[in-house]
Simulated scan of single mutants.
Amino acid sequence: MSDHKGARLVLEALPSGSTLIADRGYDSNWFREALAEKGIEPCIPPTRNRKTPIAYDKALYSQRHKVENMFAKLKDLRRIATRYDRCADTFFSAICIAATMIFWL
Rank of each mutant, 00 (worst) to 15 (best):
S2K: 12
E68S: 05
C96Y: 07
L60Q: 08
A81P: 09
K75D: 12
N49R: 09
K75V: 08
L60G: 04
P46F: 06
A13I: 02
R8A: 05
T19Q: 08
L14P: 00
K66E: 14
D57S: 00
A13D: 04
G6L: 14
C87M: 11
C43Y: 01
S18G: 02
T90R: 13
M1T: 05
L20V: 06
F92N: 13
L35Q: 00
G6N: 13
K51F: 02
P15Y: 01
P53L: 09
I44G: 04
S28E: 03
I44A: 06
I44K: 04
T100N: 14
K66A: 15
A94W: 14
K75Q: 14
D89S: 13
W104L: 15
P15C: 01
K51A: 11
Y84D: 01
L77D: 10
C96P: 05
A7T: 11
V10F: 11
L35Y: 00
R86F: 08
N49I: 06
C87F: 11
W30Q: 09
A98N: 06
L74W: 01
Q63D: 12
H4N: 14
A22T: 01
D89P: 09
A94Q: 12
R32H: 10
A36E: 15
A94K: 12
L35C: 01
S2A: 10
R83G: 09
A34R: 03
F31E: 07
L20N: 04
F91M: 13
L9W: 03
K75W: 07
H65R: 03
A34G: 03
G25D: 03
I95Y: 09
I80E: 01
Y26I: 09
I97L: 14
K73V: 02
T19K: 08
M70G: 11
E68R: 11
D85L: 08
P45K: 05
R78A: 10
M101R: 15
A22F: 00
T90C: 12
P42R: 02
C87Q: 15
I21G: 00
V10L: 13
L105N: 15
F91S: 14
K51I: 07
A13G: 00
C43D: 01
T90W: 13
S28M: 02
A94R: 10
N69C: 10
N29S: 06
F103E: 04
Y84N: 02
D27E: 05
S93R: 14
S18V: 03
P42G: 03
D23F: 03
I44F: 05
A88R: 14
G39E: 01
L35R: 00
A81H: 14
P45L: 05
N49H: 14
R8Y: 04
A72W: 08
I21V: 01
F92R: 15
A55T: 10
K38L: 08
R86L: 09
M1A: 08
I95E: 09
E37G: 07
A81E: 13
T47V: 03
F103T: 05
A55R: 12
K5H: 13
H4P: 10
H4C: 15
L35F: 00
K75T: 11
D85P: 05
P53E: 09
A36M: 11
A7D: 09
G39I: 03
A7P: 04
S2P: 11
F71V: 06
R83K: 14
R79I: 15
Y61C: 03
M70Y: 07
I44Y: 06
Q63R: 15
K73I: 02
A88P: 07
A22C: 01
